[in-house]
Design a protein around this nucleic acid. Structure first.
Lengths: 399, 399
DNA sequence: CTTTGTTTGTCCATAGGATAAACAAAGTTT
DNA sequence: AAACTTTGTTTATCCTATGGACAAACAAAG
């Protein structure tokens, strides 16, 4: 059945528009909401009053006059409810409690020692329960739980496969729904990060954005028109397993020469291990294995071998980005994940490569940036997914 | 300024819904339109009457009774206007005149002998004028001209670069608008083909579809939610110039080892030329160069060398498709263009490769098909672009 | 202190569109 | 022939946005 229009739809549309205006521009007066939205004064007044009744908006005192009657200042009510955002990683559960604006109220971290599904689930549950206990009285309570997960999730929140955790076919969403009875949203980590960057990070002003999360693997989150693109069954964005070298080695995924074996943290560290003086450096740093922290430090200190490694990885990252850019033509590419800490040592080789391999795009407004949110991109994105399902956005599209 | 809702918007939405229902299900009664759309009888009656007034719909006589009053049958008025669809290729302009349903009324073909911009433009103009002369009296006349173009077009219809034609920075849309004073829509050939397949071909029932046009180059058209995805500036879908072999040879595009040098018609023919017995075969066929027709014929006759060539190209096509599928997770991939004539000799190696390299997707509803529309995909898609801008679709999205 | 003009927000009459229900028309079934 | 069905129109009602009138509150100029 097609979606048709009636008076209720009109109201829903306009109410969403008004709330969005307040959310984005608060403190704001009714009059300014009119100017922003183009809606009539009476309409805005009426809708604002309903929003006041439902506690999503509140009034503070009068504001500054600009030559006439003082405006009544409207605020978005951050405290009308809470959201929980989780970043489930192989060795760590990071979780945050946020208000409805995405401000972090409380955070907790739980190290993971095993891959055991039941163990991890218990810890996840405890982590969430711990945050829920920190909420104060509010009209709506915790409105939802968003989770960034390191694996492939279908559109019903089932984990199909999570190579690093060695999970297969786990109905995670159903399990959590049973335990918490509030909306649960589970997407893979990169997709959640993309959401975070769009809501709170560098992607605020970009409609078509590509977020590339580079840890031990590479995942991507595709934003189209400010919305997460999911694909037919929710499996889009698996760029880490696209072919980088047709003559490369077989990957466990069934493909050959996957990009992430040439451009992620794992191959970087592997190659670092082969550096002549790595043994000494490890001794000096008191580490048994090289890690990103050490490599960045060495690069800072002027270690040419390490800088060369970064440059090579950067080129490989750039090649993959060029491919993605040619397919998707985003206006912005954000690089996030663990690799992002090496921004300074990667940026030149990445941009050089893209400039050369996708020059048409580079010359036409393509921007490549590194995430400024760090690992918060994921938890914040997860929380914002939980929030946005509360404020379901009714939008009108004209093609 | 945000899009807000009012009563006129509601009417526009519902009118579109009703017209779509009639367009897709004609012959149909008002009562059945109610059932399909969920709209009230009175509403449908009113909207249908307006559509009758504007000549987009007409009534035929009464239909079969199903136990009560006979229904009045409504038809979509194909002849309310015309559309023109053009496929501009390097050596040929194909153009069609269609009715508003996309039925071809008239077609013409103009061989191109030069790359000269003015010469081609003259022939394009004449070709369109020739079709326009064939229109009969109608309420709306020719409602628009859609053009599939072999090159990169920006979102204002300027040709940025067309390597095969050796054009650069040609304001084609503006030129045509000046000459014809009706809406002109210009997209690259693959994107237009995708539109054609979605409207009239295998893609009718798929929301997320990927159309891959393989001629001498490879282009792709990405359909997301039945809409063409354009990207930030309209440059998406350039998959032919994504990296296939990092150790490959430099391409004129600035990249290295581009996919289309391994998986399109040109490399196929190039390799065919190296076959031991190709000279004899060319003599026998009376040709100076191998072409797709000859290769398909040889394969039919059991020529193992040619079959092997197809198999290799098929594998290369499959590798590229696997990459795209992992990034975009479409439910359907349609292979079109000149290469599609070799379906029988390619399908096995393509599916085998994808099955192996993107098994998760292959196991989850991914379909790979060859275009059945042939070169009509492009002209029909172009015409349908012209038509769809007439029936601008107002849609409501709830996220 | 007064006057003038501006800004903000509310209220009200009106317009337009969807809906439900009543109604009319034209069938079929019993 | 009577009763029921189906189709399509008409009517009364409801809902929401709009525009304008209005009042309140204020700044600036005199």
């Amino acid at each position: 059945m097609a979606v048709t229009g009636d008076q209720f739809l009109v109201k829903e549309i306009n109410k969403t528009v008004v709330l969005e205006a307040i959310r984005r521009h608060a403190p704001i007066s009714r009059a300014d909401v009119c100017k922003i939205t183009g809606l009539n004064k009476g309409t805005v007044s009426n809708l604002v009053n309903e929003l006041l009744d439902s506690h999503f908006v509140y009034e503070t005192g009068p504001g500054e006059s600009s030559g006439g009657r003082k405006p009544v200042i409207l605020m978005f009510n951050n405290w009308a409810g809470f959201a929980i955002g989780v970043n489930l990683k192989v060795d760590l559960i990071s979780a945050v409690l946020t208000d409805l604006q995405g401000n972090i109220i409380e955070r907790n971290e739980t190290p993971l020692l095993t891959n055991s599904q039941s163990d991890i689930y218990q810890k996840l549950k405890q982590s969430i329960e711990g945050l829920m206990a920190k909420t104060s009285e509010s009209p709506y309570g915790v409105v939802g739980i968003g989770i960034g997960f390191p694996g492939t999730i279908d559109d019903e929140g089932n984990v199909l496969i999570a190579p690093t955790l060695k999970w297969k076919n786990v109905p995670l969403q159903t399990m959590l729904e049973r335990d918490f009875s509030i909306p649960i949203i589970i997407y893979n980590e990169a997709r959640v990060g993309a959401q975070g960057e769009t809501e709170f990070g560098l992607g605020k002003n970009s409609a078509n954005m590509l977020y590339i999360s580079i840890d031990n693997g590479i995942g991507t989150g595709i934003m189209i028109d400010k919305e997460l693109y999911k694909g037919h069954l929710g499996f889009s964005g698996e760029a880490g397993h696209t072919t980088f070298d047709i003559n490369g080695e077989p990957c466990e995924c069934g493909n050959v020469g996957c990009w992430q074996h040439y451009a992620s943290v794992r191959p970087l560290l592997k190659q670092a291990l082969l550096l002549e003086d790595m043994k000494e450096q490890l001794l000096r740093a008191g580490k048994s294995q090289p890690d990103m922290e050490l490599l960045v430090q060495l690069a800072e200190e002027g270690h040419m071998g390490v800088r060369q490694l970064f440059s090579t990885i950067g080129t490989n990252i750039g090649i993959g980005i060029s491919n993605l850019v040619r397919i998707l033509n985003p206006e912005l590419v954000i690089i996030g994940g663990l690799m992002a800490v090496a921004e300074r040592w990667l940026i030149d080789s990445i941009t050089e490569t893209v400039k050369q391999r996708a020059s048409l795009y580079y010359e036409h407004e393509l921007e490549i940036r590194f995430s400024q949110l760090g690992s918060d991109a994921t938890v914040l994105g997860a929380a914002s997914l939980a929030i946005s399902q509360l404020f379901k956005k009714t939008r009108v599209t004209v093609n």
